[in-house]
């Protein structure tokens, strides 16, 4: 009885910080996971444009000849596919870069 009385008196102060800690940890992990998610889709147009610019330095190329696609392979990873058609040699050059986007 006395023990419980003392515990009830002091308990509130001892645990005050755990919700604050939870919030801080969540804010960090959630913003990290969000930025990873948005990267997945958002960087594709920029990547495509930069690729075209780089290739255009060496060969004549139209924008439609560079194709970039991100395919979900399974729950944990995606495949980045670059498909670049070089007109001079009239041959197709496909590069498949695999990257983990966890």
């Amino acid at each position: 009885m006395t023990m419980r009385l003392i515990r009830n008196l002091f308990k509130p102060n001892m645990q005050r910080n755990s919700a604050v800690l939870a919030k801080e940890r969540l804010q960090i992990i959630v913003s990290h996971e969000r930025s990873q998610r948005s990267q997945r889709a958002d960087f594709l147009p920029a990547l495509q444009k930069e690729l075209i610019d780089v290739i255009a330095k060496y060969v004549h190329i139209d924008a439609e000849q560079v194709k970039v696609a991100l395919r979900q392979r399974d729950e944990f990873s995606s495949v980045l596919e670059l498909n670049i058609t070089l007109p001079e040699q009239n041959k197709e050059n496909t590069t498949v870069a695999e990257e983990e986007f966890v």
Binding site: K11, P12, Q15, R16, N17, S18, A19, K23
Partner: peptide
């Protein structure tokens, strides 16, 4: 109120 559980505001903020 005892600081043991995330508040409504906390959940909404996140």
């Amino acid at each position: 109120e005892r600081g043991e559980m995330l508040s409504l505001q906390d959940v909404q903020d996140i």
